[in-house]
């Protein structure tokens, strides 16, 4: 199918984009990488009266270190993150998750801001943002505000972004150098959306677990932070039993749906399996980091 007609704007500055958004409100769609929006348009599942194409807003494309944080402009391509030495060094979890996003030709266009704003719960980036306690910077006509990832994802494909706001930046605080990370997922085919994915960052010393952060993708209407499972790890340590109990808890915390690819039961089961695998691999990586 072919897209329905729409007015098209390609602003070159953020202010211009925001003014257009203010003008059209809900009738407009912001076009970033287009890897989710364009299929919706092509299937005629979306009929915006205008597209505001922000691909020429150069000020939104950057990846830099600032005050100990890594700040990524919303228009930064997934491909740029994949080949960024800074991302690989400072945000290895984000880097690993990036290689799981679709395929390279998708990542050429797909942006970090677009992926977060689209808020597909099965996508990798929302879960990574959640588990790394990222801050999202949103800009609207009234100015900028910043919101933690945990408050950003509201429900299925729904975020705290107001209709006249644009995500402009994502800020990550790198985990301590001693911590390990892992993004484990199961998809039907290479490059597909995960049936379930689990992201973990843990900081261990022997069997002791100093901090643990865990989140699941594809297991509910939003990415889900697995705090009660984290608590078990910190309390019981990364012993076989601690890991097993944390994984079992994770399976209780998620709220998956059934679809043609997997039942809710199977997704719960996978959450348990992948949580355990993520903890184990993160722990191994943490040990390698220290060695």
């Amino acid at each position: 199918m072919k897209p329905p007609p729409f007015a098209y704007h390609a602003p070159t500055h953020l202010d211009e984009a925001l003014a257009l958004l203010e003008r059209y409100g809900d009738d407009a769609k912001v076009l970033a990488g287009g890897q989710s929006l364009m299929p919706l348009l092509n299937f005629r599942l979306s009929y915006p009266s205008a597209l505001i194409d922000i691909n020429r807003v150069a000020e939104l494309s950057y990846l830099r270190q600032e005050n100990g944080q890594v700040c990524i402009g919303a228009l930064t391509r997934q491909r740029t993150i994949e080949f960024s030495e800074l991302a690989r060094r400072q945000l290895p979890l984000l880097h690993e998750a990036t290689t799981l996003v679709g395929h390279l030709p998708i990542r050429t266009r797909g942006t970090i801001g677009g992926s977060l704003a689209h808020a597909d719960p099965a996508a990798e980036y929302p879960t990574v943002a959640l588990v790394l306690d990222a801050e999202l910077v949103l800009q609207g006509p009234g100015g900028r505000r910043s919101i933690p990832a945990e408050e950003f994802f509201v429900s299925y494909l729904t975020t705290a972004l107001a209709p006249n706001e644009i995500v402009t930046e994502i800020r990550f605080s790198p985990a301590p150098r001693t911590s390990g990370w892992a993004f484990e997922e199961v998809a039907r085919r290479h490059g597909d959306f995960a049936l379930v994915g689990v992201a973990g960052v843990i900081d261990t010393e022997g069997e002791q677990c100093r901090t643990a952060r865990l989140a699941a993708a594809g297991a509910g209407p939003t990415p889900i932070r697995l705090r009660a499972a984290e608590d078990i790890l910190v309390r019981e340590g990364v012993t076989e039993q601690g890991i097993q109990r944390a994984a079992a808890k994770a399976a209780e915390l998620v709220e998956p749906d059934s679809d043609i690819h997997a039942s809710a039961d199977f997704r719960r089961h996978l959450t348990e399996v992948l949580t355990r695998r993520a903890i184990q691999r993160a722990r191994e990586r943490g040990q390698e980091q220290r060695a």
Partner: peptide, 16 residues
């Protein structure tokens, strides 16, 4: 039809 796209009708890729 619940498999009306190539997201849902799964043709194997080179990796499979």
């Amino acid at each position: 039809l619940l498999t009306g796209s190539l997201v849902d009708y799964l043709v194997p890729t080179a990796s499979e």
